[in-house]
């Protein structure tokens, strides 16, 4: 998770050329959609035909029905969890970026921050959830926000530092030949070079933030939160209801991920340009 190269969206491959437009994109979506649909059908048929118990795997139709039926409550629970995730995401990402900017100013710190940040970031940070419960109270949004912010902080910090240092030496020399002041080097070169790294981290962080929020709730949280729902529904043998809650939460995670991806396209228009108008 140290480089944007390891992030989900980077793996999704290059965006199709704008010229090829919708046709190519919808053709590209056909295979995964077909597969997804196929899996759902097989799942449904298998559960019914083999009589698999809902405790193992409820049929997708039942989960869908539960989602529809329980929508207001699920939406409420998702929002209770989601707002902790959003708040923690904003604080952790903002803090990570600013800390990265600060750490980059001093070389020994910059060199130390990356390895330490990678190690701390890969530790089971969710283990701090009970500590924050102890400090801020289990029934405070801040105990969840703190866990999320801490989980988000490290990947953003590490990638900001790595990204700021990623500008090629030749570009730095160019600005040096203009005798550009440090501030100009930062805004004209280092920050634009860092953006792909930072957004790579933000995409990872978007997914992590929802996970961290719900796991923090497993340690104790609001009675109307998704994390609390999932645990109590399982305890009450309402397996389908628990699945429905996870589905609702996934929709939120996907939306947050999509929002980050969208922001990325807006912030880095040069990255979606068509290549090859060679003459």
């Amino acid at each position: 998770m140290t480089t944007p190269a390891a992030t989900p969206a980077a793996v999704a491959g290059a965006a199709p050329a704008p010229g090829a437009g919708l046709v190519r994109r919808s053709a590209g979506a056909a295979a995964p959609l077909a597969l997804g649909l196929g899996v759902l059908v097989v799942w449904e048929v298998a559960v019914r035909a083999l009589g698999i118990r809902p405790i193992l795997l409820p049929p997708p139709s039942a989960i869908a029905a539960a989602v529809v039926q329980d929508l207001p409550r699920l939406a409420g629970a998702t929002w209770v969890t989601g707002r902790s995730a959003l708040l923690g995401f904003a604080i952790g990402a903002g803090g990570g970026f600013l800390a990265g900017l600060a750490a980059s100013r001093w070389r020994p710190l910059r060199e130390a921050v990356v390895p330490v940040g990678v190690v701390l970031g890969s530790l089971p940070i969710v283990a701090t959830a009970p500590i924050f419960n102890l400090w801020f109270g289990a029934l405070s949004i801040w105990s969840k926000v703190a866990v999320v912010a801490l989980v988000v902080f490290f990947p953003v910090l590490v990638n900001t530092v790595a990204g700021l240092a990623s500008a090629p030496a030749s570009s730095q020399e160019l600005l040096r030949s203009y005798a550009a002041p440090g501030r100009t080097v930062l805004t004209a070169l280092q920050i634009p070079s860092a953006l792909p790294f930072v957004f790579g981290a933000l995409r990872v962080a978007a997914a992590l933030s929802v996970i961290a929020a719900v796991v923090a709730e497993f340690f104790g949280g609001f009675r109307d939160s998704a994390g609390f729902f999932i645990k109590t529904l399982m305890a009450n043998a309402d397996y389908t209801g628990a699945w429905a809650t996870v589905v609702a939460l996934s929709a939120f995670g996907l939306a947050l991920f999509g929002a980050v991806a969208l922001a990325e396209r807006v912030a880095m228009p040069w990255r979606r340009d068509d290549r090859g108008v060679r003459t």
């Binding site: 989900p8 793996v11 929802v210 719900v214 796991v215 999932i230 699945w243 996870v246």
Partner: peptide, 16 residues
């Protein structure tokens, strides 16, 4: 799907 799986808070499945 592998990519989407990363945006799903799978750890929420833990109790299930």
């Amino acid at each position: 799907w592998v990519v989407v799986s990363q945006t799903v808070p799978f750890l929420a499945f833990a109790p299930i």
